[in-house]
């Protein structure tokens, strides 16, 4: 009985679907190489955390995955659900189901949250050959998702991120995620600037959405966020490469011991 179970599990692992496969990724920013041959695989439906010291390339990875034009991929490949996305524009990647929760969301004056969310939802739907979401359905979904994130209705009339507090911006990011229902959510330093209450609300939002349909990649400097969004895997990014990976216990170890031992153990140049 025990043996049979193990066989099943092994087979499961062998055929485990990968949401994202990154091989030997090199990325330049303003002609300086930041990612230097990064390899990473994200298992479908799992929560992966990338931790790393400042300047290790964490934000570069998130922007490069989302397709920011200033981040130049010089080598390597990125497969999302088996499809190479490096030739795709940022809009096409979003339409395919990749979502980046920005560390610093941009404000767009004069564009209401409601108008923006409707445009975003319908852009993604149209790209998938679905029609625009009907207004009552959109309103219902929006009302539900906002309530879950403890967002006041008045948010909808406000201009996108304009004058939002740090916490409001992060909530708005998670609301966008909840409305777009991506297959891969990349969270870039989502905990920065959040107090404990806001962190809890934001994390609850992510935890509700994550699961078989949504793989999560949490990029963070600190372990704190991982108390709320519990990772299945932790990867350490240093000097533009993933230098080691492990389970959730690795995050705790980094928290207590810092990064120097990783640097020593894996011979990362300082």
């Amino acid at each position: 009985m025990t043996e049979l179970t193990r066989v099943n599990t092994d087979r499961e692992i062998a055929t485990m679907e990968k949401t994202l496969v990154i091989r030997n990724l090199h990325v330049n920013v303003e002609d300086k190489e930041i990612l230097k041959g990064l390899d990473l695989e994200l298992e479908k439906g799992k929560t992966h955390a990338i931790m790393g010291p400042n300047g290790s390339g964490k934000s570069t990875l998130s922007y490069a995955l989302a397709g920011h034009p200033s981040y130049e991929v010089t080598a390597g490949e990125v497969l999302f659900e088996g499809q190479d996305i490096l030739e795709m524009g940022p809009d096409e990647r979003a339409q395919a189901g990749i979502f980046l929760a920005f560390q610093y969301p941009m404000s767009i004056p004069g564009v209401s949250m409601a108008n923006f969310l409707r445009s975003a939802v319908n852009s993604v739907r149209r790209a998938r050959g679905e029609g625009d979401m009907r207004v009552p359905e959109f309103r219902k979904k929006l009302t539900e998702r906002m309530a879950a994130l403890k967002m006041d209705r008045s948010f909808m009339g406000r201009y996108l991120n304009e004058g939002f507090s740090g916490g409001e911006k992060k909530r708005a990011e998670i609301l966008q995620m909840a409305m777009l229902e991506p297959k891969l959510a990349i969270m870039d330093e989502t905990d920065s600037g959040l107090d404990i209450d806001a962190l809890r609300v934001v994390s609850d939002g992510v935890n509700t959405l994550k699961g078989d349909d949504m793989t999560v990649l949490v990029i963070t400097h600190y372990q704190r966020l991982l108390n709320y969004i519990k990772p299945d895997y932790v990867h350490v990014l240093m000097d533009g490469r993933i230098v080691t990976s492990g389970g959730p216990e690795l995050a705790l170890e980094l928290e207590s011991r810092g990064y120097d031992w990783v640097r020593a153990e894996f011979a990362v140049p300082a």
């Binding site: 989302a66 397709g67 920011h68 034009p69 524009g89 940022p90 809009d91 990647r93 979003a94 339409q95 979502f99 980046l100 920005f102 969301p105 941009m106 767009i108 923006f116 445009s119 975003a120 852009s123 993604v124 790209a127 966008q176 777009l180």
Partner: peptide, 8 residues
């Protein structure tokens, strides 16, 4: 980029 990253 921000708007394009939302599918527009």
């Amino acid at each position: 980029f921000y708007l394009q990253a939302r599918g527009l």
